[in-house]
Design a binder for these strands. Structure first.
Lengths: 220, 220
DNA sequence: GTCTATAAACAGATAGAC
DNA sequence: GTCTATCTGTTTATAGAC
């Protein structure tokens, strides 16, 4: 019995790998429980159990509840915007109307399928404003997706023909980002009041308005 | 000494009035503590102390922490939108640009001065999605401000000359409402990134876009 | 009506067995 | 590395004094 080393499929994990796997399982469970009960409402015992371990295992991998939460905050809540942005970028949608519809559909999917994302993000925000030393962690997490969105918008504006102020894409990205998060939240309270079309409408209004009110005079 | 009855300024409160006053003080304290610590993180002892009473007094006026929270949820977090809407309605601002600037200024004031509103609203939302039987309470609380905003927008659209679909004001109100809440939240994380002008910009984009893409053909 | 004292349950964290 | 057992502090809620 000396085949210790050569099982490509499911060889025994090294200690480091096993530890890393335990950490991941604990973090995943923590995300679920924090989303469901909130930071203060969640108990470490519940998290450990949900991951299939005990309190002891949790404390041998993390310093406690707070570290678990902060690692999740730094990791981010499954960045759907980046995911979607890259999809859109690759597709090169024919008409803007199609792109808006796709984004509206994405909003509905995020709100209805990924039920943990919005509550987790709300927990992060509350924790950050109550513990200002963690604000930067959260800001950094949100920066990535927003910048992706900004690039996407900048590209779209360029493709459009007219010329725009240089910082416009950044401001517009911020507005669209906030709007997206807000609509996902609002939809949880009132699904009928926030259909995919409403988000598509809002995008059409914003982009039409930008084109009408921000376009610079063409230069020779 | 029989002036028991006739002191208009500060006569002794009746038992019912004293009780009502105690309840109000406890509710105000609860709003502060819930905003600062969250529902799960707040303790009834802290709330009672902050109001200047003891746990016993709290339990003689409320069935417990949950009832306190639910009464706050029904009462709402100091409805600034209604307040602002009525102000704008009375002013009949000369130019739309002035109105947008005033709204941007209001957004900044709410975000910077009324520090408890946004966290409380976030706590309400989290509680509602975790306890669906309370969703209607929260929805009702938000319905008032949104309808006020809707009337305001409907009036503005009418004054504008062009004709619009009847349900447009409701959809636009929802978008602006979500945007307002979202920007207030975002500003707490990054004040420089969300100045008053950004909200004014967003409103200009939205309204310009609506005028450009939703106006109906004039009927004779 | 409000306060003091306390009951009963539960939390986060640690120590030592395996 | 993970589990069992436990320590310590805190919580909600109540009972009875004033």
């Amino acid at each position: 019995m000396e085949n210790d080393d050569l099982q490509p499929r499911k060889r025994r994990l090294t200690r480091a790998e096993a530890r890393a796997r335990t950490r991941e399982l604990l973090l995943d469970a923590a995300a679920r429980i924090f989303a469901r009960k909130g930071f203060a409402g969640a108990s470490v015992e519940e998290i450990a159990e949900d991951a299939g371990f005990t309190i002891g295992a949790l404390y041998s991998n993390f310093s406690g509840k707070q570290q678990l939460f902060l690692e999740l905050m730094a990791r981010g809540a499954q960045d759907r915007i980046t995911e979607a942005a890259t999809v859109l970028e690759q597709q090169e949608h024919a008409t803007p109307e199609e792109a808006r519809k796709a984004l509206g559909q994405l909003m509905v999917e995020v709100a209805d399928k990924d039920l943990n994302m919005a509550p987790l993000q709300a927990e992060f925000w509350l924790y950050a404003i109550r513990n200002p030393e963690t604000m930067e962690t959260l800001s950094r997490q949100l920066q990535g997706p927003r910048e992706t969105l900004e690039r996407l918008i900048a590209g779209q504006l360029e493709r459009e023909g007219s010329r725009y102020p240089r910082e416009l894409a950044g401001r517009l990205a911020r507005v669209m980002f906030v709007l997206f998060q807000g609509m996902v939240r609002e939809r949880r309270l009132d699904p009928d009041g926030v259909p995919a079309e409403l988000y598509a409408d809002a995008l059409r209004w914003l982009l039409t308005g930008v084109a009408a009110s921000e376009a610079l005079p063409a230069d020779p």
